[in-house]
Protein backbone atom coordinates (compact mmCIF):
# COMPACT_ATOMS: atom_id res chain seq x y z
CA UNK A 1 0.00 0.00 0.00
CA UNK A 2 2.56 2.57 1.16
CA UNK A 3 6.25 1.96 0.55
CA UNK A 4 8.84 4.52 1.64
CA UNK A 5 12.51 3.97 0.86
CA UNK A 6 15.47 6.04 2.06
CA UNK A 7 13.47 9.24 2.42
CA UNK A 8 15.70 12.28 2.95
CA UNK A 9 14.68 15.86 3.55
CA UNK A 10 16.53 19.01 4.53
CA UNK A 11 15.36 22.55 5.20
CA UNK A 12 18.32 24.50 3.89
CA UNK A 13 21.33 22.94 5.55
CA UNK A 14 19.26 21.48 8.36
CA UNK A 15 18.62 17.80 7.76
CA UNK A 16 15.33 16.51 9.21
CA UNK A 17 14.83 13.13 7.60
CA UNK A 18 17.91 10.97 7.20
CA UNK A 19 16.98 7.93 5.16
CA UNK A 20 13.59 6.86 6.54
CA UNK A 21 12.28 3.57 5.19
CA UNK A 22 8.98 2.02 6.17
CA UNK A 23 5.99 0.28 4.71
CA UNK A 24 2.32 0.03 5.52
CA UNK A 25 0.19 -2.87 4.30
CA UNK A 26 -3.46 -2.67 3.23
CA UNK A 27 -5.81 -2.45 6.22
CA UNK A 28 -3.04 -1.87 8.73
CA UNK A 29 -2.92 0.82 11.41
CA UNK A 30 0.69 1.84 11.85
CA UNK A 31 1.67 4.37 14.46
CA UNK A 32 4.83 6.40 14.10
CA UNK A 33 6.29 7.63 17.35
CA UNK A 34 9.33 9.76 18.04
CA UNK A 35 10.62 12.54 20.24
CA UNK A 36 9.18 16.03 19.73
CA UNK A 37 10.64 17.87 16.74
CA UNK A 38 12.17 14.75 15.22
CA UNK A 39 10.64 15.28 11.79
CA UNK A 40 7.40 13.27 12.14
CA UNK A 41 5.35 16.03 10.58
CA UNK A 42 7.81 16.43 7.71
CA UNK A 43 7.43 12.73 7.03
CA UNK A 44 3.65 13.02 6.97
CA UNK A 45 3.67 16.11 4.77
CA UNK A 46 5.95 14.35 2.31
CA UNK A 47 3.58 11.38 2.09
CA UNK A 48 0.69 13.78 1.52
CA UNK A 49 2.58 15.49 -1.30
CA UNK A 50 2.46 18.83 0.51
CA UNK A 51 6.24 19.10 0.37
CA UNK A 52 8.68 17.56 -2.07
CA UNK A 53 11.35 15.63 -0.18
CA UNK A 54 15.00 16.16 -1.07
CA UNK A 55 15.59 12.50 -1.79
CA UNK A 56 14.27 8.95 -1.60
CA UNK A 57 11.05 7.48 -2.87
CA UNK A 58 7.45 7.24 -1.73
CA UNK A 59 5.17 4.75 -3.46
CA UNK A 60 1.46 4.88 -2.73
CA UNK A 61 -0.51 2.02 -4.25
CA UNK A 62 2.51 1.33 -6.45
CA UNK A 63 2.70 4.86 -7.87
CA UNK A 64 5.29 7.44 -6.85
CA UNK A 65 3.94 10.45 -4.94
CA UNK A 66 4.95 13.48 -6.98
CA UNK A 67 1.87 15.58 -6.29
CA UNK A 68 -1.02 15.34 -3.86
CA UNK A 69 -2.52 11.85 -4.21
CA UNK A 70 -6.24 11.85 -4.95
CA UNK A 71 -7.15 9.06 -2.56
CA UNK A 72 -5.66 10.30 0.66
CA UNK A 73 -7.08 12.16 3.62
CA UNK A 74 -5.53 13.84 6.64
CA UNK A 75 -6.76 14.49 10.14
CA UNK A 76 -4.66 17.31 11.60
CA UNK A 77 -3.94 17.92 15.25
CA UNK A 78 -5.29 21.45 15.15
CA UNK A 79 -8.95 20.84 14.28
CA UNK A 80 -9.78 24.54 14.68
CA UNK A 81 -7.53 25.36 11.75
CA UNK A 82 -8.54 22.41 9.66
CA UNK A 83 -12.34 22.60 9.77
CA UNK A 84 -13.77 25.61 7.96
CA UNK A 85 -15.40 27.83 10.59
CA UNK A 86 -17.81 29.36 8.06
CA UNK A 87 -19.46 26.00 7.31
CA UNK A 88 -21.66 23.71 9.36
CA UNK A 89 -20.31 20.32 10.38
CA UNK A 90 -22.36 18.60 7.66
CA UNK A 91 -21.05 20.94 4.98
CA UNK A 92 -17.50 20.50 6.19
CA UNK A 93 -17.91 16.74 5.75
CA UNK A 94 -19.83 16.97 2.48
CA UNK A 95 -17.68 19.48 0.61
CA UNK A 96 -14.78 17.19 -0.39
CA UNK A 97 -17.28 14.66 -1.75
CA UNK A 98 -17.97 16.79 -4.82
CA UNK A 99 -14.82 15.32 -6.18
CA UNK A 100 -16.33 11.87 -5.90
CA UNK A 101 -18.97 12.88 -8.42
CA UNK A 102 -21.89 12.63 -6.00
CA UNK A 103 -24.88 14.91 -6.38
CA UNK A 104 -25.98 17.23 -3.58
CA UNK A 105 -28.45 14.78 -2.04
CA UNK A 106 -25.99 11.87 -2.03
CA UNK A 107 -23.26 14.08 -0.57
CA UNK A 108 -25.60 15.11 2.18
CA UNK A 109 -26.53 11.48 2.92
CA UNK A 110 -22.91 10.38 2.99
CA UNK A 111 -22.01 13.25 5.33
CA UNK A 112 -24.85 12.43 7.71
CA UNK A 113 -23.89 8.75 7.72
CA UNK A 114 -20.27 9.61 8.53
CA UNK A 115 -21.34 11.98 11.30
CA UNK A 116 -23.57 9.23 12.65
CA UNK A 117 -20.61 6.86 12.78
CA UNK A 118 -18.59 9.25 14.92
CA UNK A 119 -21.57 9.78 17.22
CA UNK A 120 -22.60 13.21 15.97
CA UNK A 121 -25.85 12.36 14.23
CA UNK A 122 -27.57 15.44 15.62
CA UNK A 123 -24.75 17.94 15.18
CA UNK A 124 -24.79 18.29 11.39
CA UNK A 125 -26.24 21.79 11.54
CA UNK A 126 -23.78 23.09 14.08
CA UNK A 127 -20.81 25.30 13.32
CA UNK A 128 -17.38 24.19 14.54
CA UNK A 129 -17.23 26.94 17.14
CA UNK A 130 -20.46 25.70 18.67
CA UNK A 131 -18.76 22.39 19.50
CA UNK A 132 -16.17 21.21 21.98
CA UNK A 133 -12.67 20.31 20.83
CA UNK A 134 -13.43 16.61 20.93
CA UNK A 135 -16.56 17.07 18.83
CA UNK A 136 -14.67 19.13 16.29
CA UNK A 137 -12.06 16.42 15.97
CA UNK A 138 -14.86 13.89 15.46
CA UNK A 139 -16.11 16.03 12.58
CA UNK A 140 -12.60 15.97 11.16
CA UNK A 141 -12.57 12.20 11.41
CA UNK A 142 -16.04 11.99 9.85
CA UNK A 143 -14.83 14.11 6.94
CA UNK A 144 -11.98 11.69 6.36
CA UNK A 145 -14.29 8.66 6.68
CA UNK A 146 -16.84 9.97 4.20
CA UNK A 147 -14.08 10.67 1.72
CA UNK A 148 -13.17 6.95 1.71
CA UNK A 149 -9.43 7.40 1.20
CA UNK A 150 -7.19 4.42 0.53
CA UNK A 151 -4.76 5.89 3.06
CA UNK A 152 -5.64 8.03 6.07
CA UNK A 153 -2.90 10.12 7.64
CA UNK A 154 -3.39 11.33 11.19
CA UNK A 155 -1.04 13.97 12.57
CA UNK A 156 -1.17 13.94 16.38
CA UNK A 157 -4.95 13.72 16.05
CA UNK A 158 -5.62 13.56 19.78
CA UNK A 159 -2.93 15.98 20.88
CA UNK A 160 -5.24 18.91 21.63
CA UNK A 161 -8.04 17.28 23.62
CA UNK A 162 -8.37 16.29 27.25
CA UNK A 163 -7.49 12.81 28.51
CA UNK A 164 -11.02 11.38 28.64
CA UNK A 165 -11.87 12.62 25.16
CA UNK A 166 -8.57 11.29 23.95
CA UNK A 167 -9.43 7.77 25.05
CA UNK A 168 -12.88 8.00 23.46
CA UNK A 169 -11.38 9.16 20.19
CA UNK A 170 -8.74 6.42 20.21
CA UNK A 171 -11.45 3.79 20.55
CA UNK A 172 -13.52 5.51 17.90
CA UNK A 173 -10.66 5.34 15.42
CA UNK A 174 -10.01 1.69 16.22
CA UNK A 175 -13.68 0.86 15.75
CA UNK A 176 -14.29 2.65 12.45
CA UNK A 177 -10.93 1.58 11.11
CA UNK A 178 -11.81 -2.05 11.67
CA UNK A 179 -15.30 -1.51 10.27
CA UNK A 180 -14.09 0.03 7.02
CA UNK A 181 -10.83 -1.89 6.78
CA UNK A 182 -9.01 1.43 6.49
CA UNK A 183 -5.30 1.84 6.16
CA UNK A 184 -4.02 4.39 8.64
CA UNK A 185 -0.69 5.98 9.39
CA UNK A 186 -0.93 7.74 12.74
CA UNK A 187 1.75 10.06 14.00
CA UNK A 188 2.07 10.70 17.72
CA UNK A 189 4.59 11.57 20.38
CA UNK A 190 2.60 9.66 23.00
CA UNK A 191 4.18 6.29 23.69
CA UNK A 192 1.11 4.70 25.31
CA UNK A 193 -1.08 5.78 22.45
CA UNK A 194 1.27 4.47 19.78
CA UNK A 195 1.11 1.01 21.31
CA UNK A 196 -2.58 1.07 22.19
CA UNK A 197 -3.87 1.95 18.70
CA UNK A 198 -1.19 0.43 16.49
CA UNK A 199 -0.91 -2.89 14.70
CA UNK A 200 2.71 -1.89 14.40
CA UNK A 201 4.76 0.85 16.00
CA UNK A 202 7.56 2.53 14.09
CA UNK A 203 9.98 4.43 16.29
CA UNK A 204 11.96 7.33 14.90
CA UNK A 205 15.25 8.57 16.29
CA UNK A 206 15.98 12.09 17.39
CA UNK A 207 16.44 14.58 14.51
CA UNK A 208 17.64 13.89 11.86
CA UNK A 209 15.12 11.07 11.91
CA UNK A 210 15.81 7.48 11.01
CA UNK A 211 13.75 4.39 11.81
CA UNK A 212 15.20 2.93 14.98
CA UNK A 213 12.70 0.11 15.37
CA UNK A 214 9.65 -1.45 13.77
CA UNK A 215 7.67 -3.35 16.38
CA UNK A 216 4.76 -5.66 15.86
CA UNK A 217 1.99 -5.10 18.41
CA UNK A 218 0.48 -8.43 19.41
CA UNK A 219 -2.50 -7.31 21.38
CA UNK A 220 -5.31 -8.69 19.24
CA UNK A 221 -7.87 -6.78 17.26
CA UNK A 222 -10.22 -5.65 20.02
CA UNK A 223 -8.69 -3.45 22.65
CA UNK A 224 -9.92 -1.99 25.87
CA UNK A 225 -8.65 1.12 27.58
CA UNK A 226 -8.27 -0.63 30.95
CA UNK A 227 -7.77 -4.31 30.19
CA UNK A 228 -5.40 -3.90 27.27
CA UNK A 229 -3.18 -1.52 29.16
CA UNK A 230 -2.81 -4.14 31.92
CA UNK A 231 -1.57 -6.87 29.60
CA UNK A 232 2.06 -7.91 30.06
CA UNK A 233 2.64 -7.53 26.36
CA UNK A 234 1.39 -3.92 26.48
CA UNK A 235 3.58 -3.08 29.43
CA UNK A 236 6.60 -4.67 27.78
CA UNK A 237 6.06 -2.88 24.47
CA UNK A 238 5.48 0.42 26.19
CA UNK A 239 8.74 0.12 28.06
CA UNK A 240 10.52 -0.91 24.89
CA UNK A 241 9.17 2.03 22.88
CA UNK A 242 9.84 4.37 25.78
CA UNK A 243 13.49 3.39 25.94
CA UNK A 244 13.85 3.78 22.19
CA UNK A 245 12.19 7.19 22.12
CA UNK A 246 14.46 8.44 24.88
CA UNK A 247 17.35 7.32 22.72
CA UNK A 248 18.34 4.56 25.13
CA UNK A 249 20.23 1.47 24.04
CA UNK A 250 18.35 -0.90 21.79
CA UNK A 251 17.86 -4.27 23.34
CA UNK A 252 18.75 -7.30 21.31
CA UNK A 253 15.10 -8.33 20.99
CA UNK A 254 14.21 -5.15 19.13
CA UNK A 255 16.58 -5.79 16.31
CA UNK A 256 15.37 -9.34 16.00
CA UNK A 257 11.76 -8.31 15.89
CA UNK A 258 12.16 -6.05 12.88
CA UNK A 259 10.48 -7.55 9.91
Amino acid sequence: MLEITELVHSYGSHRVLDGVSLSVAEGELVSVVGPSGCGKSTLLRSIAGLIRPSGGQILLGGRPVDQIPDNLAIVFQDYSRSLFPWMTAANNVALPLRRRGLDRRRRREAAMAALDQVGLADAGGKYPWEMSGGMQQRVSIARALAYRPSLLLMDEPFGSVDAQTREDLEDLVLRVCAHHGMTILLITHDIDESVYVGDRVIVLTRSPARVSADLKVDLGASRDQIATRQLDEFVRLRAEVGRLVRGGSTTATTVLEQH
Binding site: A48, L50, I68, S82, F84, W86, P96, R143
Partner: peptide
Protein backbone atom coordinates in the same frame (compact mmCIF):
# COMPACT_ATOMS: atom_id res chain seq x y z
CA UNK B 1 -4.68 29.96 7.33
CA UNK B 2 -2.10 27.67 5.75
CA UNK B 3 -3.82 24.61 7.15
CA UNK B 4 -7.12 25.59 5.54
CA UNK B 5 -5.35 25.81 2.20
CA UNK B 6 -3.62 22.49 2.77
CA UNK B 7 -6.91 20.86 3.70
CA UNK B 8 -8.35 22.15 0.43
CA UNK B 9 -5.39 20.74 -1.49
CA UNK B 10 -5.52 17.36 0.23
CA UNK B 11 -9.20 16.95 -0.56
CA UNK B 12 -8.56 18.01 -4.13
CA UNK B 13 -10.71 21.14 -4.32
CA UNK B 14 -10.86 22.67 -7.77
CA UNK B 15 -9.57 26.23 -8.19
CA UNK B 16 -13.11 27.60 -8.23
CA UNK B 17 -14.01 25.62 -5.10
CA UNK B 18 -10.90 26.77 -3.32
CA UNK B 19 -11.71 30.37 -4.16
CA UNK B 20 -15.40 30.22 -3.34
CA UNK B 21 -15.39 27.89 -0.38
CA UNK B 22 -12.08 28.66 1.30
CA UNK B 23 -10.25 31.82 0.27
CA UNK B 24 -13.17 34.24 -0.07
CA UNK B 25 -15.00 33.16 3.11
CA UNK B 26 -11.74 33.34 5.06
CA UNK B 27 -11.06 36.82 3.71
CA UNK B 28 -14.65 37.98 4.22
Amino acid sequence: DRQHLETARIFGFSTAQRLRQVILPAAM
